[in-house]
Design a protein around this nucleic acid. Sequence first.
RNA 1: GGCGCGGUAGCAAAGUGGUAAUGCAGUGGACUGCAACUCCUCCAUCGUCGGUUCGAUUCCGACCCGCGCCUCCA
Length: 469
Amino acid sequence: MTLHIYNTLTRQKEVFKPIEPGKISMYVCGITVYDYCHIGHARVLVAFDVITRFLRSQGWDVNYVRNITDIDDKILNRADENGELYSDLTQRMIDAMHEDEQELGILPPDMEPRATAHMDEIITMVQILVDNHYAYATDNGDVYYRVSRFPEYGKLSNRNPDDLLAGARVAVGDIKEDPRDFALWKGAKSGEVSWESPWGPGRPGWHIECSAMSTCCLGDTFDIHGGGPDLPFPHHENEIAQSEAATGKKYVHYWMHAGAVRVDDEKMSKSLGNFFTIREVLKKYHPEVVRYFLLSSHYRSPISYSEDNLMEAKGGLERFYTALRPFAAVSAASLGDLKGSEYYQRFVGSMNDDFNSREALAVMYDLVREINTVAKTDIKQAEGLVAELKAMGAVLDILGTDPEAFMQGSSLVDGANSLEAEQIEALIADRVAAKKARDFSRADAIREELLSQGVVLEDSREGTTWRRE
RNA sequence: GGCGCGGUAGCAAAGUGGUAAUGCAGUGGACUGCAACUCCUCCAUCGUCGGUUCGAUUCCGACCCGCGCCUCCA
């Protein structure tokens, strides 16, 4: 089956053609580590995690690089506010980010380069640009990219360079030749952290670190470059300008951008201050609910973070886990054994179509219905289908929780005022006794009491099970 | 103003030139001591107006509405 990817550069879905057969080199813009990661970050992280997992499941040899930007004005400002060393701040935030990723089931990238560990490559690239007149140094030790020298500027974000000129902000006393020019290197003011360079002590501008790190990890040209919704302009546009001017080669074949996370119809962003950190959200919702929520829309569509939508995600997962509950012992099928399965074919087809995870989930729900139907008459066959469902879940890294644990514990926090499992079990035992004595009013009273505590009982031939609403 | 994305059932969300997946909620039924779960059933003329076509939600145009980028933000 053919892989199709929507390419921001061409604004259309394209057949994916790797540079090297069977291999995919992918660079995703990671986090600038000056604060905790929010749900918007989580979306990008989860999207590319699922993309990587799926591609690998189909036999692609993926080399996944995601950088950490650990030097930047915002980092310095925040460290200053906190009265701590910038490197202490970034290390703290990197540790926190790794914790968040682990909670959400995000695999580490193959390489996680840090800007401060690649100063030599950054300076070398700036030097090349200066040597080729694509950049110029100013008296204060800054170095700027000369946008007018790069005629293709604007090709990713579909902007006309002249319009950009008209719209560009011109700061008073600007030392740039052209308002569109952007900083490659910023000369240090006294007391600021700095690195030695041919232009004096300073630090890199925002965009150059990604050009330098992607090139040194993946080469001058690589397959996929990804990132968040606000990166095409100016960040990725500038990366193209820097890299293609420095190497003379095409920088990236496929550009991929995730959609925005919204709150109350507005983009969640640092500048609006309407963001929710991952750790904050995980106090309210099971990690798998968050992951499922992010997968229940196409990665490029905008999604709304809201209580309703998260609860809906929980409800959707419960349908899966309800079906899986009697089959906890069944393990996932190996994908190689599923080649002939119609469900698996559809699942792969959906994911190959620009990673349509929502459609892939719809296939899994169809499978759930068949499992529930078949389970009534043919356990053996049902087990086969369950193994298949778990295999698909594993590709997306969902459905890996013990079903019983998920059903009984997926409602976090309300834990404070709710019953302990032992109390619930005790009440169930009372109710079983009441039922045996055919004292149904007592049995119903117990059920009602538990329900009022958010606990739902389910009787079956095998006995009574419970779950939290 | 420039560039781009989107408007599909109560909500969420896929998709297709031949009258529309899936999940939650809702309807009716089977099952159940009663429920829950499960299964079956029902529930949308796909923003508006034109055009192309034998036929459009799907293609084209106009319009209305929402959103994003254009400045730091994933």
